[in-house]
Each structure stands twice: as structure tokens, then as C-alpha cells.
Design a protein around this nucleic acid. Structure first.
Lengths: 208, 208
DNA sequence: GACCCGACCAAGCGCGCGCTAGGTTGGCCG
DNA sequence: CGGCCAACCTAGCGCGCGCTTGGTCGGGTC
């Protein structure tokens, strides 16, 4: 839709800073109240402008949501792709993927929350087909790593790897609902706790 | 709010069957589209009546949501309480709790989905304070069992039990988003897969 | 000083929402 | 048969929503 504007001469922000600012505010409110329950007037209030002025920056309320989700999905999928492309020990790769997933908790919790909360509803509309594609590619990447680990005899292979992936994904991503950045744990610590639990299990005296 | 009606003589449905029918339809639509995005006209259409006729059965759209959530919470919390009250081996108790949690997947997936999707938003309103109470009691019950298991040396005790509970809860409950009753697995099977993974871990050749 | 333009304001339109008030119907019961 | 009532219909009210149109303002540029 909106291409990057290049002013006559010299370097300027590719897209307006104000625009990014408003988008971040919108993401926060979408995350807190849900997309449908958020009004454009609330977003405008948070930005200190009138609701109509939003339409100087954005085509519609939906286009704001679109940009938030697209941006988040692009960033994470690119990251997962790079990690898997690097190759290596499946166990270490899975560890890296989990850490990256928890990393988005710290980087952009609002976008992650919006993603989690609205995904199931939005994915049924043709316009948001890219959500399904992104989710499917993510699943392919993760399940591929789990599969490799199973074939290498590193992971137990008596459970459907897709089911394992889903248990992992849910436990990791939904933690955005209870994780507090100002709490006692940093995202990396939570990631390591989760990896400990996932790899070695809850029962005492298990392994490694 | 609405008490059970007792007709003059004889046995009759405590509450109207039609009412329960409409409530189930509403739960399904709330689960699919989200509460805020659902209109009373959609619910009425599904029931084959006009939107105004809904108000013969219910006070408001919110009261329908209220009844769905309250009902679900009451059933599950009661179940957890009974299981914990029975006592026994912490490992077996946790196993039972997990199976019960997955059980609500089969019994009332719509109510569970509504619960998961709307909880975070609704819990901030005073009217829905009972949601927080129910969630807190559930957490107390589960964490108590995990704590007992740790003290008994059955569970690893190097991870905050509350964090373990949250990882479990999220992975279990959110599975309503991908679990399909007509798929290849029954809820009990999924529960057993999850218990296997949780107790013994993903890494091969671990324990028991 | 004239021009330009990004950022925002002022005012309000039309639609779909939750909900309401009063009327109709049909099955049951004495 | 007459009265009753749960279930539903008819018609529409008022509000708040997303969004539009035309205008204002101030900093930057030559």
C-alpha cells in the first residue's frame, strides 16, 4: 500500500516516526482490550489527537492491525529460517528456537499478544491468509528440527512431533499473558527454565 | 439473577431446555468469533428466532457470557477440588488433574475456548471478579500438588512450581485451539502424550 | 515573501449495534 | 370452552462506531 517516501534530497525517516509511534500505541491497546473492543477514538486519545486524524497516517483500523501482524510475523519467521539454515545439532537448534520465541516476549510483547489473541479469528478471512502461511512455515521449521532430533536418536520418538511442537508453541507464546517484564525473571531465564522442563521432564532423577 | 422456576405441580425442566439450547449456540459463536465480534442477531439467527426474542430468555448479551463462564468455572473448580481432596500420591494426583483438564476439551470445548479467549480482557472488570477467584483457586490446588511432589522428592525442585503450573496450564488449555474432536486422537490420548512428555522429558533415554 | 506539505482539527454522516415495548400464537390445564 | 403463559414476532429507538470532507497551522525551502 504505502511506499517509503523519499524527500527531494538527503536522508529522512523512511516512514514517519509519528506513524510508528501511533502503531506501537495501537498494538498496546489491541493487546489489552482485543481488536474488536478497541475504538479508533481510544487509539487517537492515546496519541493525543482526534480520531479523524488517524486517517492521515492509516487507511483504516484494519490496516493498522495488518501492519502489526505482518511485521511481527515477518520478523519471527525470518529469524527461525536463519536459525534453521545455520544447521547443527538438533538439540542445540531447538534450544535456539525456544530462546528466540521467548525473545519476542521481551522485544515486542504487544505484537505477540495481538498475534495470539486474534490469530484464530482472523485466519478465516481471505485477507489474512498470510497468517496461516506464516504459521505453517513456522510449524514446518520447528517440526523439521524435532524430526531430525528423533531420527538422530536424541529425542524420544513415541509422540507425534507435530503434537510436541504445538505443546511447546502454546506454552511458550501464551506466557505473554502472565509474563511481566518488571517481574523477577528475565525472558532468557524463563526460556532456560522451560528448556530444562521440556528436555529432562518434571520427574526427579531423570537424565543428563 | 434468574432463579429456577418451579411450576405449580409435578416435575418440569428446572430451567427451560430452549434456553440451554440457545446458550450452547451462543457459546459456539462466542468461541468462533470472539464475544465482542458476535452480534445478538447472529445468535438469534442460529437459534432461528429474531434478535429481540433473545431477551425473553436472557437479560442481556453479557448475561449469556456470564452464565457460560460461571458454569464452566464452577464445574472445573469443583472437579479439581474433589480430586485434591481425595489425596494420594502427588504424581498420581497431578496425572488426574491433567486428565481432567484435557477432559473439558471433550465435554465443553466451546465454553473452554470462550474462557481462554476472553479471560484476560474480562478479568479487569469488577463484575467478572469471580474469574480471577476461580483462576486463583485452580492455581492454588495445582501448585499445592506440585509442591507436595517436590517435598516428597518426586518432582524436580529447581524450577518455580508456579511457573511449572503455568507452562502446564497453557499447553493443556490452549490445545482447544488445535484439537479436533473428529481427528485421530481422543482427549485421553492427548492427555497421556502430554503427561509422558511432561514427566519424562523430550530427551531420549531419560528415566522411568 | 510565496509556496509547499505533513500533521492535525472541526464537524458530522450513515450504519449496525444492543436493546425495548407491546402484540400474537399455540399448547396445556381445569 | 376459557384463561394462562412461555415463546416468539413487529417495529423501531438511540447510541457509538469507523470513517469522510474540507479547513488550519507552522516549519522548511528557494
Amino acid at each position: 500500500m504505502s511506499a517509503a517516501r523519499q524527500p527531494g534530497t538527503g536522508a529522512a525517516p523512511l516512514v514517519s516516526e509519528r506513524r510508528e509511534e501511533i502503531l506501537a500505541l495501537a498494538a498496546k491497546i489491541f493487546a489489552d482490550k482485543g481488536y474488536a473492543s478497541t475504538t479508533v477514538r481510544e487509539i487517537a486519545d492515546a496519541a493525543g489527537i482526534l480520531s479523524g486524524s488517524l486517517y492521515h497516517h492509516f487507511d483504516s483500523k484494519e490496516s493498522m492491525l495488518d501492519e502489526i501482524m505482518h511485521g511481527f510475523l515477518d520478523r519471527t519467521v525470518t529469524q527461525y529460517r536463519a536459525t534453521v539454515a545455520e544447521g547443527g545439532d538438533p538439540l542445540e537448534m531447538l534450544r535456539a528456537l525456544v530462546r528466540e520465541a521467548f525473545g519476542s516476549l521481551g522485544e515486542n510483547p504487544a505484537a505477540l499478544a495481538v498475534m495470539i489473541n486474534e490469530f484464530n479469528f482472523l485466519v478465516q478471512f481471505p485477507h489474512f491468509a498470510y497468517l496461516r502461511e506464516g504459521a505453517e512455515e513456522t510449524e514446518r521449521l520447528w517440526v523439521g528440527v524435532i524430526d531430525d532430533g528423533m531420527r538422530a536418536g536424541m529425542f524420544r520418538s513415541d509422540i507425534d512431533p507435530r503434537m510436541i511442537y504445538r505443546f511447546m508453541r502454546d506454552a511458550i507464546w501464551i506466557s505473554v499473558r502472565w509474563y511481566r517484564p518488571d517481574g523477577r525473571y528475565r525472558p532468557e531465564e524463563v526460556a532456560d527454565f522451560y528448556l530444562e522442563l521440556l528436555f529432562d521432564g518434571l520427574v526427579a532423577g531423570s537424565s543428563s
